[in-house]
């Protein structure tokens, strides 16, 4: 079952606090780059190289900030990457305990179904394109809903406010146009 917003929001806030108390603020979207880098480095081992403990890459993005991302690609068992894998475990446990989403909603979510019908191809295609735009945008912005919006505004960081203004300025009109029926 879904929690009341007060309990749910408090729980979420405590997790964000715990993260910054014990380690560092939560962020997710960088790990898409790290996974891409891990796969690309298997295909082409020359992508990430290490000399005397200093990592760099032939890809300018992985090499930036003194090879910070290149280092994570070379060492996948790092905090931020494992964090995202652990998120999946937590979400999995939660969904099992509440009995799952149901086979139909797992294929086509209710809101999509009432607005766009039962074509799986259409739903999957839009989810794929949406994913592409979301992650390209997140990397351009340097963070996503977790890192910029929640962790950023929580720390009163200017960039978090700029990001959130942009995200909602696009998301609200797009959602209002797409989801006219509520389901």
């Amino acid at each position: 079952m879904q929690l009341n917003w007060k309990v749910g929001g408090l729980a979420l806030g405590l997790v964000f606090f715990l993260a910054v108390l014990l380690v560092k603020p939560i962020g997710v979207s960088t790990q898409f780059v790290i996974l891409d880098g891990i796969v690309a480095d298997i295909v082409n081992p020359a992508l990430v190289t290490e000399t005397d403990g200093v990592y760099t890459s032939t890809n300018a993005y992985l090499a930036k900030s003194d090879g910070k991302y290149a280092k994570s690609v070379a060492n996948p068992l790092n905090y931020s990457f494992l964090f995202v894998l652990a998120m999946m475990v937590g979400a999995f446990l939660s969904s099992r305990l509440r009995g799952g989403n149901g086979a139909q909603d797992n294929t086509i979510p209710m809101l999509w179904y009432v607005n766009f019908g039962d074509s799986k191809v259409k739903r999957y295609a839009v989810a794929f394109v949406g994913g592409f735009i979301t992650l390209y945008g997140a990397r351009l912005a340097g963070g996503c809903t977790s890192g910029h919006m929640m962790s950023g505004m929580m720390q009163t960081s200017l960039s978090g406010y700029i990001f959130s203004a942009g995200a909602f300025a696009a998301a609200v009109p797009v959602a209002m146009m797409m989801y006219r029926k509520e389901g």
Binding site: V126, V129, A141, G142, C144, F163, A167
Partner: peptide, 26 residues
Amino acid sequence: KAAYVGVFVGGLLLGAGWAMSGFCPG
């Protein structure tokens, strides 16, 4: 994180993709 114009532009892109798909990265 640093503030730059791309933060806003990237936010717009993410917002559009977020609304289309119903998912954000996390």
